[in-house]
Simulated assay, not measured.
Amino acid sequence: MSQSSILVIAKAIPPFIGGIEAYSAEIASAYVQCGLRVTLLTPEACIVPGVDGRLNRSPQGAKAAPQWIALVKILASLWHLRKKEWSWVHATSWRMALPVLLMGTGRRLVISVHGREVTGQQGLMARLAGWVLRKARLIVYVSEATRREVHHYFPELVTASSVVAWNGTSFSESRPAGEVSANLRDPLRILTVARLVKRKNLAFAVAAVAKLSSEITRPVSYVITGTGAEREAVARAIRDAGVLNGEIKLAGYVSDGELQCLYRDADIFFHPQSSAHDASDVEGFGISIVDAMSHGVPVVCGKDGGPSEYISHGENGFLVGGLDLGEAVDCLSLLASNQALRQRIGEAGRSFVREHMSWPNHVSKVLKELAAH
């Protein structure tokens, strides 16, 4: 069958917040850019993207349906679409593949795996996740680290057809190449963009920035954006830090426009993620890290998970241990004191992302693998 049409099934797309939600919208648009006819199915809508891949997205303030309600809604929509023929059906998470299998139409099923949504399952849910993934024609992993972790928890998937395809970026770059902060009297602007969950290691990040602030003469402005269950823990870490030479701000949710301004103005992006608290909770990819690199912002991030695949230490970013405060502060201090280094590392990161990371590249790898099978 010709690869001319594809059904993408997702629990939600932006403005719902989350990596899988953003991923779902991006790959639907990218399939259009690759010349396919696309239908994007969510519990709330059946969307046919425009010829440019643009989506009519959910209104701001809408709430995502609980998981079981979302599955029922998807199943109902699939029933109405049962007479349509699709070259492939791409479920952006294993749960969204369940309705496809219940309809008995899983022979051309593609499932994306991001990490925690699979490796974090236990008991019956783990067995169900493994069963669903074994039914897929192709499993798409967002990094080799994710594939390795999934194979550790589900050895039976080692022989399943799969491909590793890196994600793209969320924005076009908005900062001109070579533009970095040169006035040492201005605050050193450090930025973190992340969901406020344990894996992101944000209390550690606050402690590292506070220590940096006490060791350098330049004032430090540190902004953490995002929402999540660890908000109070992060706020407490900020209160306990007692920063002497600058400020640490927990900004919460920010709009895309505000976020682009933060990337544009940042001197350093800091994302010291760690799986030390939970071996099953590994950073699968790290889109915000790649977004920072695409803006030419030098990155200091954790060694664990997917980022170690695309960051070469000292070349296009810095990798640090998520428990080694001294190592993190040393890397931050090195960048803080050396404008030329910030520019060199930032531009190397930008060039790497331009060459290797885009959503059309992601779906092209998927389509190439499907054609081979």
Rank of each mutant, 00 (worst) to 15 (best):
Q3V: 12
I6T: 10
I9F: 00
P14Y: 08
A28F: 00
S29L: 03
S29R: 07
S29H: 04
S29N: 04
G35L: 04
R37I: 00
L40I: 11
E44F: 03
I47N: 02
R54V: 04
G61A: 03
A62G: 09
K63D: 12
Q67N: 09
W68G: 03
I69H: 12
I69W: 12
L71T: 04
E85I: 11
V89G: 09
S93N: 08
L109C: 12
V110L: 02
S112P: 00
G115D: 04
G115K: 05
R116M: 15
V118Y: 13
T119A: 11
Q122A: 13
L124V: 12
A129C: 12
W131T: 12
L133M: 14
L138H: 11
V142L: 01
A165I: 11
V180N: 01
D186C: 09
L191R: 14
K200Q: 09
N201G: 06
A203T: 10
F204P: 11
A208V: 07
A208W: 00
S214E: 08
P219H: 06
S221F: 13
G226E: 13
G228D: 02
A229K: 15
E232F: 00
A237L: 12
D240P: 02
G242I: 00
A251I: 13
G252V: 01
D267E: 02
I268T: 09
I268V: 14
H271Q: 12
H271V: 00
P272N: 05
H277L: 15
A279L: 11
S280M: 13
G284C: 08
V290T: 14
M293I: 07
V299L: 01
K303I: 13
G306F: 05
Y310G: 02
S312W: 07
H313F: 04
G314R: 05
G314P: 00
E315R: 14
F318C: 07
G321Q: 10
L325Q: 03
S333K: 15
L335W: 11
A336M: 07
S337N: 05
Q343F: 14
Q343W: 05
R344D: 06
R344L: 06
G349Y: 01
G349N: 06
G349I: 06
R350W: 04
S351H: 08
H356C: 07
S358N: 12
H362Y: 05
A371D: 09
H373V: 07
